[in-house]
């Protein structure tokens, strides 16, 4: 059913910390690995070892350069996957009912056996979260690892999305945004988490945490005093004091 649920009991989603992400693509690779063997058909590739490889991925990392007016440029690695929007335009445009948003937890999924591969959902998504599988010819998207998070057959520690589980920098967090005291709600509140393209009116569930403010040379910071060279004891201390006396 491609009408959106009036409300969902839970709002499962991700927090992605742009301050922490190092752009290693481990989440991308683990996502592909898990999802090619999990929910639905394998994630197809075409010409994988040839001159012009391409394929379906559910999570991709872009790297942006941000240049302030008065400071040097900084690099921000930017992981992007489905945001499981509350007002998901990809769901309502679907003519077959293959796309749907679950009322129990808000996950947006595709029933691949009903998908006709018309691409309209991918056109409706501003974020590029959906990709057509080049082998199966059905639409693929992030499932929030629905086959992991409720899976009693794997250790409890693994019951989070593959991208979250694998991130070596802890830049990705999984939780319930409907619970104001959950890890993701707290992080979003404390770090100023934000929506991507809020002007599109999609009300994304996933939140991004901005890079922390960079210290700049002319500014005094709390950690700077620790770096003022300080004479200690021993040979170096004696040398320092002796040289000071020389003027």
């Amino acid at each position: 059913m491609t009408l959106l649920p009036a409300q969902t009991n839970k709002k499962l989603g991700l927090v992605i910390d742009l301050d922490v992400c190092v752009g290693c693509h481990a989440c991308v690779v683990n996502c592909k690995e898990w999802n090619t063997g999990g929910y639905g058909a394998p994630l197809g590739d075409v010409d994988a070892y040839g001159d012009n490889p391409s394929g379906a991925w559910l999570n991709r990392i872009h790297t942006f350069e941000v240049t302030p007016d008065d400071a040097p440029a900084q690099i921000v690695h930017f992981p992007k996957s489905c945001l499981h929007c509350e007002d998901a335009p990809c769901v309502t445009v679907c003519p077959t009912g293959a796309s749907y948003k679950r009322s129990e937890d808000g996950i947006v999924l595709v029933d691949e056996s009903m998908c006709i591969g018309c691409s309209l959902c991918a056109w409706a998504c501003p974020y590029g979260a959906r990709e057509m599988d080049p082998v199966e010819n059905v639409m693929k998207k992030c499932t929030l690892c629905v086959d992991r998070i409720y899976n009693d057959n794997i250790p409890e520690i693994d019951r989070t999305p593959a991208c979250v589980r694998t991130c070596p920098a802890n830049a990705r967090h999984f939780g319930d945004f409907a619970d104001p005291n959950s890890n993701v709600s707290t992080m979003t509140r404390e770090r100023g988490g934000y929506d991507l393209m809020p002007e599109m009116g999609t009300k994304p569930v996933n939140q991004y945490l901005p890079p922390r403010k960079k210290s700049r040379p002319e500014e005094t910071t709390e950690i700077a005093p620790a770096f003022v060279p300080k004479a200690g004891e021993g040979l170096l201390g004696w040398l320092d004091r002796a040289l000071e006396k020389l003027g």
Binding site: H62, F64, V66, T67, P68, Q74, I75, V76, Y194
Partner: peptide, 18 residues
């Protein structure tokens, strides 16, 4: 707005994901 980084400065794609 797409990246939410606009308030920090001028945003430019440095490297595509693939």
């Amino acid at each position: 707005t797409a990246t939410g980084l606009g308030h920090l400065g001028k945003v430019r794609l440095l490297e595509k994901p693939h």
